[in-house]
Design a protein around this nucleic acid. Structure first.
Length: 196
DNA sequence: CCTTCGATGGGCT
DNA sequence: GCCCATCGAAGGA
């Protein structure tokens, strides 16, 4: 399959709209060993200064979060325990919002995805943010890269049938933010992550 | 199917 | 020294 990076203007949308429109697009990694691609089926929006669950809550700017203040479409990777998580920076420059890519469906390079994920069943290759990054072999080296440029980019995909919207998962000690409807997924897809 | 729990390392105060 | 935007194994039903 032949994938082309989406145009940079795609990322210049209100963050909640972009989070929804990323569903059904492809994440593509032109890896030295071959092309790996997954269809995005789950995202979460982090709304910056007013969102207690966001790393940039209160406009906190550190070496880790500074990329969130940059232009839409930049890659924000960060480490959670032993895992890498992939985000799309969103919103105008100076507004530190981002979208976490939480799950994907294998589309291309499945031999490599299996190699990077080890000896587990296909349905568990990329049904979580850390798993997806590992299946694509995306590392912290891509911090600050842009999602419209090779070798790691978003490509236009087929879209999804129906969207489901609900509260984000895995966050805690964030008060009301726990209930915000900032999680978007393809309704009924078997590889949407199942965390509480 | 479900829930619980330990490993784990970087970021931040 | 504490806090996680996680994962996978283990154990129960």
């Amino acid at each position: 399959m032949n994938f082309r990076p989406i145009h940079p203007g795609f990322f210049e949308k209100p963050t909640l709209e972009l989070a929804e429109k990323l569903l059904g697009q492809y994440v593509v990694h032109e890896h030295p060993e071959g092309v790996i691609a997954a269809k995005i089926i789950e995202t979460e929006a982090y709304m910056g200064a007013e969102d207690r669950a966001a790393h940039s809550f209160g406009n906190r700017k550190t070496k880790r979060t500074e990329i969130m203040f940059g232009k839409a479409g930049l890659v924000y990777t960060y480490q959670m325990h032993t895992h890498t998580l992939m985000n799309v920076v969103s919103g105008p420059i100076g507004i530190p919002q981002a979208i976490l890519i939480r799950a994907g469906e294998p589309i291309a390079g499945e031999d490599l995805m299996q190699k990077f994920r080890g000896n587990i069943s296909r349905k568990d290759w990329s049904n979580g943010p850390g798993k997806l990054a590992k299946a694509l072999d995306v590392t912290m080296n891509y911090y600050g890269h842009h999602w419209s440029e090779q070798p790691l980019f978003i490509a236009e995909g087929p879209g999804i049938s129906e969207v489901e919207i609900g509260p984000r998962v895995g966050i805690q000690n964030t008060g009301e933010a726990v209930h915000y409807p900032y999680r978007f997924s393809e309704k009924g897809h078997p590889m949407v992550s199942k965390y509480r």
